[in-house]
């Protein structure tokens, strides 16, 4: 069992992801935007973060990872694995363009929405083991 933090502004995804993870025995907390998410990281000290890329602003998820990985304030949390997800990237020709210096923002793995329980749990287990 691990502590997983879901940061997503879409309540339906949060609900579904939480149910799948809880059924697999994980302890889940949630946050609805980047700011709440960063506060929750400190409050919950999660083993894994599932982070939506597009929230209030297009790249809000990326700014969360940049803060986590790049600021002294979050020094203690910079090794927490981050699973980024989005409903946008599945479409050919449609993509996020990131500036080259944004490598920090990428997270450790990526998940297309919607996802099956198997794919989600496989990625979660891999990141937790990794």
């Amino acid at each position: 069992m691990a502590k997983v933090l879901i940061i997503d502004d879409d309540a339906d995804y949060t609900l579904a992801t939480k149910a799948i993870l809880q059924a697999a025995g994980h302890q889940v907390s949630t946050a609805a935007d980047g700011k709440q998410g960063l506060e929750a990281v400190k409050a919950q000290d999660p083993d894994l973060i599932i982070l939506d890329i597009m929230m209030d602003s297009i790249y809000e998820g990326y700014s969360v990872t940049t803060t986590l990985r790049g600021t002294p304030e979050y020094m203690d949390y910079r090794d927490v694995p981050v699973l980024m997800c989005s409903a946008v990237k599945t479409i050919a020709g449609e993509r996020f363009t990131l500036p080259p210096e944004a490598e920090l923002a990428q997270g450790d793995d990526y998940l297309d929405k919607p996802f099956t329980a198997e794919v989600l749990l496989a990625k979660v287990e891999k990141l937790l083991a990794g």
């Binding site: 879409d10 339906d12 995804y13 149910a19 799948i20 059924a23 409903a87 929405k113 919607p114 099956t116």
Partner: peptide, 20 residues
Amino acid sequence: MRSPLAAVRQLLEVMVKQSL
């Protein structure tokens, strides 16, 4: 259309896998 449908798909996934 895609966003709400994708969300519905995600919710159905919970039911199909009987997570609850």
